[in-house]
């Protein structure tokens, strides 16, 4: 089985690089992005089990990036990783489909655990979709 693939998005390059190294040392495949636009390009080109997304970024902020990521991949598991996740932004992020919110600093083991669980959720969702698709074909053909 391929390793869990996570996209880490934060405009602080040092933060992204170091967190990526720590996640890789725990067996994850990590892609880094330092802006919302880079994150969108990455999701257009690759499949991710989860995205760790900062809220405060230049160009596109985290919430707008979240919205656009879900336009590309509606079932994408996006977790907000923020320095100052206020209740208001947290509620808005969940409303826009974020699956989790972590306030920095976050324990890396907790992140790894949630990323692995996100992969399981994604695979289960894909299985459900495949099952629905098969049911539809069977019904259509009258089997």
């Amino acid at each position: 089985m391929s390793p869990d693939h996570v996209l880490v998005v934060d405009d602080e390059r040092d933060f992204v690089e170091i967190l990526a190294e720590r996640l890789r040392s725990r067996g994850l495949e990590v892609t880094c992005a330092t802006s919302g636009r880079e994150a969108i390009s990455a999701v257009e080109e690759q499949i991710f089990d989860a995205v760790l997304l900062d809220l405060a970024m230049p160009d596109l902020d985290g919430l707008e990036t979240l919205r656009r990521l879900h336009e590309i991949q509606p079932d994408l598991q996006v977790m907000i990783l923020s320095g100052r996740a206020t209740v208001k932004t947290a509620v808005e992020a969940i409303r826009r489909g974020a699956t989790d919110i972590f306030e920095k600093p976050t324990d890396v083991e907790t992140l790894v655990e949630r990323i692995r669980s996100a992969r399981a959720t994604r695979i289960a969702h894909e299985d459900d979709m495949a099952e629905e698709h098969i049911d539809e074909i069977l019904k259509r053909r009258g089997w």
Partner: peptide, 12 residues
């Protein structure tokens, strides 16, 4: 906060 978070990850 960004500075502290980076230092925290580096220490980790």
């Amino acid at each position: 906060s960004n500075v502290f978070n980076i230092i925290n990850e580096m220490a980790g």
